[in-house]
Design a protein around this nucleic acid. Structure first.
Ligand SMILES: [Mn+2]
Ligand SMILES: [Mn+2]
Ligand SMILES: [Zn+2]
Ligand SMILES: [Zn+2]
Lengths: 149, 149
DNA sequence: CTATTATATGACAAAGAGACTCATTTGCAA
DNA sequence: TTGCAAATGAGTCTCTTTGTCATATAATAG
């Protein structure tokens, strides 16, 4: 049974992993939940969070994002811009979506597809490599930038 | 007509892009050609190069690798270990291979497949995104590590 | 072959993301 | 309410990569 990721369920998830549900972690989580569709960096989260509670430190943001990724609430991405970017992990996706990264404006959009599952099987069969996960990114130009050129 | 990537042809490629063929660039290139199958970081190249010419500076290695990637001689990869890794670009591959990264020992192996070409076409059709390039990595365990666990 | 000059180089400093340190604070279980 | 392990914030530190600049050197013209 797949538990839906409400604020409360995530707090419980923290407790189940014996992490304390601190005021700071709640604020960071709440802030993140208001930007479900975005791919935020630690610094960006820090800025958003500071608006709600200026006392929170950057190190705490880094630590909290790490923990949320570790317990499966967030996904940590690397889009090649020199900083990690986090997004809310959808409750209903067994294997995650792919990313379309615009080489001009940096905008990140998404693409769903399960073709990679079969490719993982091919790899495990053809090579001696046991595949656990994959990461697929497409680089190109978004509609807006393509039209502007 | 595909020119084969000999040492001389790459020197000419540098000249054609109005880059000077300096002693340092030749040494770095020669060193790289002795490790065709590896995915070297700038620091690793620096160490190998220092053996042949201890006078070469790290900044020059960084700059040279950048240039060689820019003119298509090298490919710049990010395997998530916090540093860029370069490899010789094969003359005969229109679209590059994928990488299998071991989560235990960090070893990188390769996998050839052209399934992604068709996926790029699907994306360009289904979304408004103009795909230029892609990057596919698989994470898991290499034969050696899988057996040892 | 020599002079000219734009480019390249090496040493060093600096930037930027993120991890580490440690004194102080706080969640939470007893 | 108390006790204490865990968490926090401020600052320091590490590491990769880029920037600066005085000096050196390919490439080119004469
Ligand atoms: Mn996403
Ligand atoms: Mn490779
Ligand atoms: Zn764009
Ligand atoms: Zn391994």
């Amino acid at each position: 049974m797949q538990e839906s990721k409400t604020f409360e369920s995530i707090c419980n998830l923290l407790r189940n992993h014996s992490y304390k549900v601190t005021h700071q972690r709640q604020t960071i989580l709440q802030t993140f939940m208001e930007h479900v569709d975005r791919h935020l960096s630690a610094e960006e989260v820090y800025m958003l969070v500071k608006h709600r509670d200026p006392e929170i430190g950057l190190a705490t943001v880094y630590r909290t994002l790490d923990i949320l990724a570790e317990i499966g609430v967030l996904l940590k991405n690397d889009f090649g811009d020199g900083r990690s970017r986090y997004e809310f992990s959808r409750k209903d996706e067994q294997h995650h979506h792919h990313h379309l990264i615009c080489l001009h404006c940096g905008n990140v959009s998404e693409f769903d597809d399960d073709l990679l599952e079969s490719l993982e099987a091919v790899i495990s069969k053809r090579t001696q490599f046991k595949v656990i996960d994959h990461d697929l990114k497409f680089y190109g130009y978004c509609k807006k930038c393509e039209e502007a050129l």
